[in-house]
Structures are given as structure tokens and as C-alpha cells.
Amino acid sequence: MHSATSRAPDQASSPADDRASSAADIEARLTAELASVVAGARRRALRDGDRQLDTAHLLHSLMESDPEVRAAFESTPQIARVLGYLVQRSIGYGLRWQGSVEDSGEVPVMTQPGWSPSALTAMDHALRRAAARGRDRAGGCDLLAALAADAECRAVEVLHHAAVDPASLTRRLDESSRQG
């Protein structure tokens, strides 16, 4: 849990302070479950020897921990294929990503050490999706929809390899959010 820090009106904030508070603001607007997903993705990135948490780390952690996210897929074999590719990341598939920065070309709202620009952009889009649905906090399906919408991110590359159509996945998530 992050504590709020007050600043006297005459004290100027540095760009580093603004980025840190923005990252804290994002994490404060996640459901407890999604905050746990982010923590799991951080541990996975560290364990894999990656410099940054990326969208594939987020997808992996979502798939492992969120039953609503798994329910958004068409079938159990599709879920198994996605998880299979994600597990292989550290033993071959995905090794070409090590040492490189994931950047799908969108300008991130902010930067944060330890996060890829694409992962930050996905978190921002998840928060916007939640707000558009009248929610104060983003959940796992909000993040999955944000990941699937970024055609150039590593999570979508995994989905393509697992024969998952990101556009169909996004439509199912949108339909589900309108019904729920």
C-alpha cells in the first residue's frame, strides 16, 4: 500500500517525483486481484532475468491467477496453448526478448523503471476501460482487453502463436463487460 505524501505549495516536484506518483496512482487503481497479478509478473520478470516487466509477463500472471481471464478464451485447449507458449518463454521461446525493451510504438503516458513502455500503456488502457464502464478500479479482464488491443506487444505475439485471434478475444471481453 502506498502512502500519500503532501508537498507544500511552494515546493516544486521533479519529473522523477511525477513519474513515481503516477506509477503509485496506477497501482492504487487496481483491484486487489490485479495488484497480485502485477506482483506476480514482477517476480516472473526477475526470475527470468529480464530487465523489465513486459506484456507477456502480465499475460502469464493473468492466465495463471484469474479465472475470469481464462473464461474469456474460446476453449480449454486455447488456454493450454497460451500457457504452453508462456511457460516456454524462459526455456527457448521468448529468449530473443531478453535484454531488449518491449515497445510497440505507442507513446507511454509515463515511464517507470522496471516496466516496458508497452506494459505501462496496457495498464493505462486497462484503467481507462474500467473507468468507461463506471469502475474505480481495473480488473484482470480490463488488462487482458488492453493487452489484446495492442497488435505490436509481446502478449499479442504469444496469442498469435497460440492461435488466438486478439480481435475476437477483445470482442468477447467487450460483450461480457456489457452483460455484467
Rank of each mutant, 00 (worst) to 15 (best):
R70N: 09
S90G: 05
T5K: 05
C153W: 04
L58V: 02
A167T: 10
V87K: 12
L147A: 06
E106V: 13
S75H: 13
E64V: 06
L62M: 11
S168C: 11
D18E: 12
V164W: 04
R129G: 08
V109G: 14
M123P: 07
I79F: 04
V38P: 00
L127D: 06
E102Y: 05
A32N: 03
R128W: 07
L144R: 02
A167Y: 08
D18A: 06
R133G: 14
R42W: 00
A80L: 14
L58I: 03
P108A: 12
T31D: 01
I79T: 14
D124A: 15
P67K: 11
P67I: 07
Q11Y: 00
I79M: 10
G105F: 12
S36M: 01
S90Y: 01
R133C: 08
T121V: 02
V38M: 03
H2Y: 11
A8E: 03
E74F: 10
E68L: 15
D25H: 08
T5C: 00
A80E: 15
V37H: 00
A130L: 12
D48H: 09
L143D: 05
A132H: 11
R43C: 00
D18F: 06
Q88V: 02
L169M: 12
L30E: 00
A162M: 03
A12N: 04
V37C: 00
T76I: 15
R137S: 03
D25Y: 04
E68A: 15
G114Y: 13
A155L: 10
R51T: 03
I26A: 06
V109H: 14
T170D: 06
Q112V: 09
E152T: 07
A45K: 01
V156A: 05
M1S: 08
A130G: 15
M63G: 07
A163T: 12
A23C: 05
P9A: 11
R42Q: 05
S75Y: 04
A12T: 09
A4S: 09
D25V: 00
D136V: 02
M63N: 07
L143H: 01
P113D: 15
A45G: 03
A122L: 15
D48Q: 07
S116T: 14
E33R: 05
G180D: 13
E106G: 04
S21A: 12
Q179R: 15
A71P: 10
E175H: 07
A163E: 15
L59E: 09
T55H: 05
S3R: 08
V87G: 08
D136Y: 02
H160P: 00
R81W: 06
